[in-house]
Design a protein around this nucleic acid. Sequence first.
DNA 1: GCTAAACCTGCATATTCCTGCAATTAAAGC
DNA 2: GCTTTAATTGCAGGAATATGCAGGTTTAGC
Lengths: 249, 249
Amino acid sequence: MLKPERQAFILHQVNLHNQVLSTGLSQSLDVSEDTIRRDLQELADNNKLIKVHGGALSLSFNDSHYHATHVYAHAEKKLIARKAAALIHNDMFVLTTGGTTLIELARILPPSLKATFISGSLPVALEYTHHPNIEVILIGDKVSKNSKITVGGEAIVKIKQIKADLCFLGVNAIDAENGITDNDWEVVQVKKAMIESAQRVICLTIAEKINTCQPFHVCPARAIDTLITELPPDDPLLEPYRKQGIRIL
Amino acid sequence: MLKPERQAFILHQVNLHNQVLSTGLSQSLDVSEDTIRRDLQELADNNKLIKVHGGALSLSFNDSHYHATHVYAHAEKKLIARKAAALIHNDMFVLTTGGTTLIELARILPPSLKATFISGSLPVALEYTHHPNIEVILIGDKVSKNSKITVGGEAIVKIKQIKADLCFLGVNAIDAENGITDNDWEVVQVKKAMIESAQRVICLTIAEKINTCQPFHVCPARAIDTLITELPPDDPLLEPYRKQGIRIL
DNA sequence: GCTAAACCTGCATATTCCTGCAATTAAAGC
DNA sequence: GCTTTAATTGCAGGAATATGCAGGTTTAGC
């Protein structure tokens, strides 16, 4: 990785998260901390960020539209994203839905990860493009304005032509009896297709949505392989799902 | 292998992968690193790529695209967008490319406009979704990290199935003799398909790009119907284009 | 104040870059 | 087709850049 690329990545990270740690960057970029320190110093000299003891801060705390509109349960979603990221390995094909949790996942993927991500979500796909070694495939069709994902017959046909290793499913509601449910008919069709096209389905959801229900049925709970929440895996709230043979992380 | 051939290959590589290493090119082209370095230097002098220590980066690499806030020649692009918006009427089907000028156009569309926009550009499509009466169709395929648009065979096939009323083409370089040219081979393929699939082609460009040239050919100047710049229509700079029968706005 | 982490300085090393030059190769002119 | 001319290329040497490491110093948090 060339130096300007590395610095661009650092800048992207600092603008996303408002702060970065030298140690973290050193690990994810696989260079010494001294190099990171020198990069931060250089970027600070050019007024791209503010260098502080231990890392750096973003220049403006209020520039990005993402941070301007506050994300609900941000800390929880970050934690979920971290657990999910650990499941992705090099050369995998990964299907993902949309949603803020998936955006968070896209943001914390290590720059060294070399994989192919397939999604119909505009914001999530845009986030993937910032990673140097990730190939992004966008599913085309009509764009649903609410969810900013593509929906429709074309999209579903395309998804069904794929055989992915993993599918990360951001869910709206999950319940041990009714399984996964959603409130948008068209989005449900897309999710169904994604579940069919992946070897393993991983569900991402904040605990608040567990044991809730929405009008449209996506799939029974046991159709998923793994469930990731911000709770510790042995939390009693998750017990009914473990009983159905779902792996809990 | 002759020098122009070699440089074309380098340019193709850098636009494809965003980045090339001197060592890698030296091996794959079987010439000394000095030769590669001289090539890179020469290409950089002609503004075809950005030379950095150890290799080169594609032109579209700039750390400023992480700061979406500052757009080059913003006032000019707004003016162009206003002229372009006047051409769109209700119930039209409109194909558009990517680029900051097209984002500007998307932003100023009147909320009452009821039309269908088809694009492969992620940022532009996202902008369309903010409009209540606009239907957005996204072209799917591999996402080019440089331009944030989808490129590839699938995308081209889909575009060719469309018959649109208008095509708004954000251009990188236009010249009365060489016509429209661009610096990314894959993007050129998409633009060509869009031109074919539209009844009228409208070119949007800031005056700075007029009478400039890039490595890859898109179409001759007379293949477009309308040219929109921030200049008044009777500016002498535009005279050669008017002579070719292009409508100037 | 104490401690651990982060920092800075200087240095060693490995690349990469540049300059000049000679050898080769392509192109132009006859 | 052959000669002349210009351009291109590779190489040698020294300069510049990038990075990591050792050590002593500063900082932040307790």
